[in-house]
Design a protein around this nucleic acid. Structure first.
Lengths: 214, 214
DNA sequence: GCAAAAACAATCATGATTGTCTTTTATTTT
DNA sequence: AAAATAAAAGACAATCATGATTGTTTTTGC
């Protein structure tokens, strides 16, 4: 591999250690992105291999060169979606702000995006698709666990009353995700979003233990 | 028709005014039920005409005699699901009990059933299926409107503060439906259901205007 | 009874999706 | 420069869902 750079004096490819590997990685990424876009645009069940190939702008033959079959591609897409979610999550939680308001808004913004749409498409499909469930459920559980652990880190003073802490988390999760899913299915009155968010924040604050000194 | 009874001395069919009409209606009902069961068992996208025919225990040819094509059957199934929802809803609301607790539990029980599962399958599918949306969205909207009007009837004393009333309704809807959907997708911790329900009831009570006299 | 109509069953042609296989083109490697 | 390897495209057969067509049995109305 090192010899390649010495031998070819031409510019361009000479600088890369391995043009093929880079090209392959880029193509795989293109395919994974196309898969995610298809899930968002057409839904899981209509995310077919010809459609993904078309969305990625390449032949189906080329596609199947990089992923041995359709479900290998889907598996990679799920892994990428999971990473996306975790990245967005870390970004939200890591910003050193521990205020309820900020965190509620951050999670709301996150699940208002298309990544959540794609995830819910997969989650509902996995209800009746065992193979898909086997891939997806571990990712869902890891996310929930990290969510919970991160919340514990953010609110250490709350750990004395675990029941109220758990309730605040469960409430947040179900209200926000409920709104997000209802929005996907013509079931959300947008005018109610802001009042509900405000109420949720108020309620979480009410569940917090009183600080010993202000 | 009357002559038939005279002619055939055998019991059974003689008593019905029109055997064919009854048979046809029964067969159509069987097909519609089979369609709903398929949506619940296999999901919307895997509810195919051969599968429905098999579930109904008849040939696909017979099936297509009663419904000109697959989407006509789906349309009938959606109408039936809509009726089911409205019936369950009327039963809940009509039981002359106007307590928050009772109503919350009634709606929770309702959306914990399979009818809601089927409806959410359809609702999410309609996100990316325009034809399905054209059939489904009107039913969804009618249900929401009736839900709202029924709530107004049940809580006339609340109408002075419409903002708080609307908030209570929107909260109920999103919390309960959020839980129901999360339960469908491995996202609900069953241990949190009861605490969330209790909290929701408490919060709705808190939003109610104070009665002038106790 | 008997002809018409309805219920039911079976088959056919079409289009879509899937995975495999072969061919062509580009890139490494020696 | 030639052989080897990887990327990309295309062709292929198998499966499945769909709607239409045809044939068979049962019910209906005279």
């Amino acid at each position: 591999m090192a010899r390649t750079a010495i031998k070819t004096l031409k510019p361009g490819p000479a600088l890369e250690l391995n043009v093929q590997a880079a090209k392959s990685a880029a193509t795989r990424a293109r395919l994974i992105d196309a898969t995610i876009r298809c899930i968002i645009k057409h839904g899981y069940s209509r995310t077919t291999t010809p459609r993904v190939a078309e969305e990625a702008g390449m032949s189906r033959g080329a596609m199947l060169h990089h992923f041995e079959n359709g479900s290998a591609l889907m598996q990679a897409a799920i892994a990428e979606l999971h990473e996306k979610r975790l990245r967005a999550f870390r970004q939200s939680a890591g910003s050193s702000v521990h205020e309820v308001h900020t965190l509620v808004r951050a999670y709301w913004k996150q699940i208002s995006g298309q990544t959540f749409t794609a995830f819910h498409e997969l989650a509902l499909a996995s209800r009746t698709d065992k193979d898909l469930a086997n891939i997806l459920v571990p990712a869902q559980e890891e996310f929930r666990v990290r969510w919970y652990l991160q919340a514990i880190e953010l609110f250490p003073e709350w750990q004395g009353d675990r029941a109220r802490f758990d309730l605040a988390l469960a409430l947040s999760q179900n209200v926000l995700e409920g709104m997000a899913i209802n929005r996907l299915t013509h079931g959300l009155d947008e005018r109610m979003v802001e009042p509900i968010l405000i109420d949720l924040e108020r309620q979480i604050e009410a569940l917090k233990p009183l600080p010993k000194k202000v």
